[in-house]
Design a binder for these strands. Structure first.
Length: 425
RNA sequence: CCAGCGGUGACCGAACGGUUAGGUGACAGUCUGUAAAACUGUUUUGAGCAGGUUCGACUCCUGCCCGCUGGA
C-alpha cells in the first residue's frame, strides 16, 4: 500500500490509497488510539487489505475544509499566513507574495492603526486595495503588542487596565488608548477575512494570580469584542476568533476555552507564547484547547511556528498558522530547505524532513548548485549558491528578497504537502 | 636624485612612553500573533627590516627597504 500526499486527486491511480486529513474531531479521536494517527490509519487499511476485505473503504473520506474570504475565495485548509505586520511583507511586494503561492497574509491592527491610520485605508475601502493584494488577510488584534511593547518598556504603573492599554508609540511622543473597541472598529475598516479579539497575556511562567488576571481580562474583552462585532450588519462578514490565554496552567486554559466557546466564535486561537521556558514547544496547551471546543471551530496557532511544530499541530487538528520566522529568518540568513531531493520526495513523516541553509558561509562562495532541488521558487530555479552568497556578502537588499521568497515557498509547499486529507479510494 | 607624508593581525583602522580601541572577514549560535535585512559569542598580544635611547618602545632617534604625493 502506498500513501500519497498530493493535493491533486486526479493524479492518484486506482490502486493508490490517498489520504486526507480528517477534521479536528476525527483527528482527535484517531490520535487518541495511538501516537501518530496517520500510522494508525495506515495500519488499519493495511490490515483490511491483508484480511481480504475491501481496503478502499470510503468511510474516512471527508470533505476538505476551507477558509472563506470575504471576497468569496475558498482557500483549502490548513493554511499558513506570513506576517505583513505593517501591510508589507518586508522586502516583497504583493506580486512577489503571489508568486510564492502564499494564499494569505496577516496584518497588524495596532501598527496600522498608528500608521497610516484610518483615513487612507478607508479611501481604499480596505487593506486589500491598499496593498493591491488578492489573497486572504487576517488582522491580528494588537494583543501581542500589549505584551511586547507596553510591558517590555517598563513603566511604574501597568499600562494595561480593564478599559484597554495606554501605549506610548515607540520613537514618538504620541500616546494612545487602545481598547477592544479601537481594535474591532479598525479591523472592520481593514476589511480582513478574520477578525481577532483583543486579548491580554503575560509570560508563561508568571504566577497563577497574574495568569488568572489576564485570562479574566481576555474574556472580558472577548465578550466586548463579540458584542461590538455583532453590531456590524454587513453582507460578507469575516470570521471572529477568540483567543485562549492561561499560561502553562492547563486547567486555566481549559476554563478559558470553555468560557470563550460560551460567548461564541468561529474559531479559537492558541495565545501567549507557544514555547516553554526552555524553548521547547508546548503541545499540551493546543491539545487541551482542541479537546474542549466544538468540531466546527477553526483552530489557529497564533505565532506558530517552526515547520515541524506546524506539522504536529495540523495532526492535532489545528488549521491556521502565522509566524514571522520564514520572513525574519530569511533576512537573518537562515533558509529552510527540505532534505528531499525533489518536491515529490518530500516526506513529512520523517522527523528530520528539513534543515537550515546559511547562505553567507564562505564554503558556498564557489558553489554553482541551486539552494534546493526540492523547491521551485525564483531563487532556486534561477540562481545558484555562489550568487546568493555574493548578494549577502555585499549586503544587497536583493538577497533579503530572494531569501524571503524562498522561505515563503518552503512554507507554502509545506502546507500543500499537509493539505491532502486522510481518506481512501 | 631631492623633499614631504606614511608602513599596526587575513583586511580596514584608532589611540598611546607602561594593562594595545573598534570594525570587516572567518567560525559558532539566537530569533515563534515583527520597534529585528538584527543580535550574541569565539577568533591572531599583531607594529616593514636592523640597530639605538629608556627600568620599559607600536609610540622617541638613526640607517635601510617599500608605498603615495610634489619637485628636478
Amino acid at each position: 500500500m502506498k500513501l500519497v500526499y498530493t493535493p491533486d486527486l486526479k493524479s492518484c491511480g486506482s490502486n493508490t490509497v490517498w489520504v486526507r486529513f480528517p477534521p479536528a474531531a476525527l483527528s482527535r479521536s484517531l490520535r487518541n488510539k495511538s501516537g501518530d494517527w496517520r500510522n494508525w490509519l495506515a495500519c488499519l487499511l493495511w490490515e483490511q487489505e491483508v484480511a481480504g476485505s475491501n481496503p478502499v473503504s470510503p468511510t474516512i473520506f471527508m470533505k476538505p475544509k476551507f477558509f472563506k474570504t470575504i471576497t468569496g475565495q475558498k482557500i483549502p485548509l490548513p493554511i499558513f499566513f506570513p506576517d505583513a505586520t505593517r501591510a508589507v511583507l518586508k522586502t516583497l511586494d504583493s506580486a512577489d507574495i503571489e508568486n510564492t503561492k502564499t494564499p494569505g497574509i496577516l496584518v497588524n491592527t495596532f501598527h496600522l492603526n498608528n500608521f497610516p491610520g484610518t483615513s487612507v485605508i478607508k479611501e481604499h475601502d480596505g487593506i486589500r486595495n491598499f496593498m493591491n493584494w488578492g489573497g486572504g488577510v487576517i488582522s491580528d488584534s494588537g494583543g501581542f503588542q500589549v505584551m511586547s511593547l507596553a510591558k517590555t518598556f517598563k513603566t511604574k504603573k501597568s499600562p494595561v487596565s480593564d478599559i484597554g492599554v495606554n501605549f506610548k508609540i515607540p520613537n514618538t511622543n504620541k500616546k494612545i488608548l487602545f481598547t477592544p473597541k479601537t481594535s474591532i472598529d479598525f479591523q472592520m475598516v481593514l476589511k480582513t477575512d478574520m477578525v481577532v479579539v483583543l486579548d491580554d497575556f503575560t509570560d508563561l511562567d508568571a504566577d497563577l494570580n497574574k495568569q488568572r488576571e489576564t485570562v479574566e481580562r481576555t474574556i472580558l474583552w472577548a465578550r466586548e469584542c463579540k458584542k461590538l462585532f455583532d453590531k456590524y450588519k454587513i453582507k460578507n462578514k469575516p470570521y471572529l476568533l477568540g483567543v485562549v490565554q492561561g499560561g502553562y496552567n492547563l486547567e486555566l486554559r481549559k476554563e478559558c476555552t470553555e468560557r470563550l466557546v460560551e460567548i461564541g466564535f468561529d474559531g479559537l486561537g492558541y495565545g501567549g507564547w507557544p514555547q516553554n521556558a526552555d524553548k521547547t514547544f508546548n503541545y499540551n496547551i493546543p491539545k487541551i484547547i482542541g479537546e474542549n471546543c466544538p468540531d466546527n471551530y477553526l483552530l489557529y496557532g497564533l505565532g506558530v511556528g517552526k515547520p515541524h511544530e506546524i506539522v504536529k499541530m495540523v495532526q492535532m487538528g489545528w488549521n491556521i498558522f502565522d509566524c514571522v520566522l520564514p520572513t525574519r529568518d530569511a533576512r537573518h540568513k537562515r533558509l529552510y530547505v527540505f532534505n528531499a531531493k525533489t518536491i515529490d520526495d518530500i516526506d513529512l513523516s520523517d522527523d528530520k524532513f528539513y534543515s537550515y541553509y546559511v547562505p553567507d558561509k564562505e564554503i558556498h562562495s564557489h558553489d554553482l548548485s541551486p539552494i534546493s532541488t526540492a523547491c521551485d521558487c525564483l531563487l532556486c530555479t534561477r540562481y545558484d549558491r555562489s550568487y546568493l552568497h555574493h548578494l549577502f556578502q555585499i549586503g544587497d537588499m536583493t538577497a533579503g528578497r530572494l531569501a524571503t521568497i524562498h522561505n515563503l515557498r518552503f512554507y507554502s509547499l509545506l502546507m500543500e504537502k499537509l493539505r491532502p486529507i486522510y481518506g481512501s479510494i
